Simulated scan of single mutants.
Amino acid sequence: MNDETPVMTSHRPYLLRALYEWIADNEMTPHLLVDATRSGVQVPLHAVSEGRIVLNVAQQAVSGLEMTNELIRFSARFGGVSQSISVPTHAVVAIYARETGQGMVLPEETGEDAAAGESSHATPDGAATGRPALSAVPSDASSAHHSHEDDPEPDGDGTDPSGPRRGGHLRVVK
């Protein structure tokens, strides 16, 4: 008999697919909060703010959505230009419904999960760091909007730069 605990695959992609389906089944708009500093993330750099990007992944906002165990891939329009998006599942920080803020902040991967994904982070200048720092999302929707003229509008083009509309709905449960 073997005393070692069996190694399981990461539960992140399963949670992402389940929560995506739950949000869509409730006729809400699923959004992903992505750590754009992680390796393998391919998103338009002009849409990244403070190392993060919010992606609208609603069926009507994207085309060709694929959610595998390793990667989320789709095409979306940013400022009227179609872009191919590729996000490793280990780079997704949270998934939530835009309208209510309900969803889940995904737990950090540990042990085998982190080794399979990525165990270190890089800053925009390429320097390695420890775990990324999370910042609070403004609870006032007006202060959450950017004032950049080139920022895409949240009307089905693949992004919503404001993040959740109401703060305080996502809680880390241990």
Rank of each mutant, 00 (worst) to 15 (best):
62 V>C: 14
125 D>C: 04
113 D>L: 02
115 A>W: 02
103 G>N: 10
75 S>M: 13
112 E>A: 11
80 G>N: 14
73 R>N: 11
125 D>Q: 09
62 V>D: 13
120 S>I: 13
95 I>M: 14
122 A>T: 14
125 D>V: 11
79 G>R: 10
57 V>A: 03
72 I>W: 04
68 T>H: 13
114 A>P: 09
105 V>M: 00
82 S>T: 07
96 Y>H: 02
85 I>N: 00
51 G>W: 03
85 I>C: 07
122 A>I: 01
120 S>D: 04
102 Q>N: 09
56 N>M: 03
65 L>T: 13
67 M>G: 05
63 S>F: 02
102 Q>W: 01
48 V>Y: 01
68 T>L: 03
95 I>R: 10
103 G>F: 00
54 V>C: 02
60 Q>L: 12
103 G>I: 01
48 V>A: 07
88 P>H: 12
61 A>L: 06
121 H>R: 13
82 S>N: 15
77 R>S: 15
82 S>D: 13
49 S>G: 02
114 A>Y: 09
51 G>Q: 06
93 V>N: 11
87 V>T: 14
123 T>C: 00
125 D>W: 03
85 I>E: 09
84 S>V: 08
88 P>K: 04
83 Q>D: 13
118 E>D: 10
84 S>Y: 04
86 S>P: 06
122 A>M: 01
67 M>I: 15
97 A>C: 03
91 A>Y: 08
97 A>L: 03
69 N>M: 11
121 H>Q: 11
114 A>S: 12
125 D>S: 13
117 G>L: 08
72 I>V: 15
103 G>L: 12
76 A>C: 14
119 S>T: 12
116 A>D: 11
79 G>F: 00
91 A>F: 08
125 D>Y: 02
57 V>H: 03
99 E>G: 05
51 G>P: 11
55 L>E: 10
65 L>A: 12
81 V>R: 13
116 A>F: 05
116 A>P: 01
76 A>L: 07
57 V>D: 06
56 N>E: 06
104 M>D: 00
108 E>N: 12
105 V>L: 12
102 Q>K: 02
108 E>Y: 06
64 G>V: 10
122 A>V: 10
52 R>C: 11
89 T>N: 13
73 R>T: 15
70 E>L: 12
80 G>M: 10
97 A>K: 04
52 R>A: 13
88 P>Y: 02
75 S>V: 03
66 E>L: 10
106 L>N: 07
118 E>A: 14
98 R>W: 03
90 H>K: 05
112 E>Q: 09
49 S>K: 09
104 M>G: 07
60 Q>C: 13
67 M>S: 04
68 T>A: 15
101 G>F: 11
104 M>Q: 05
59 Q>H: 12
115 A>T: 15
52 R>V: 09
96 Y>F: 15
91 A>S: 13
95 I>H: 01
100 T>W: 05
59 Q>I: 09
96 Y>E: 00
103 G>M: 03
67 M>R: 10
92 V>W: 06
113 D>Q: 15
103 G>A: 08
98 R>E: 08
117 G>Q: 08
81 V>N: 03
109 E>S: 01
85 I>F: 02
57 V>F: 11
94 A>G: 12
117 G>N: 09
62 V>N: 04
94 A>N: 07
83 Q>A: 04
98 R>F: 15
74 F>Y: 15
54 V>M: 00
119 S>W: 03
127 A>P: 00
124 P>I: 05
123 T>A: 09
106 L>R: 09
106 L>M: 10
68 T>E: 13
86 S>V: 04
61 A>H: 03
81 V>K: 05
61 A>E: 07
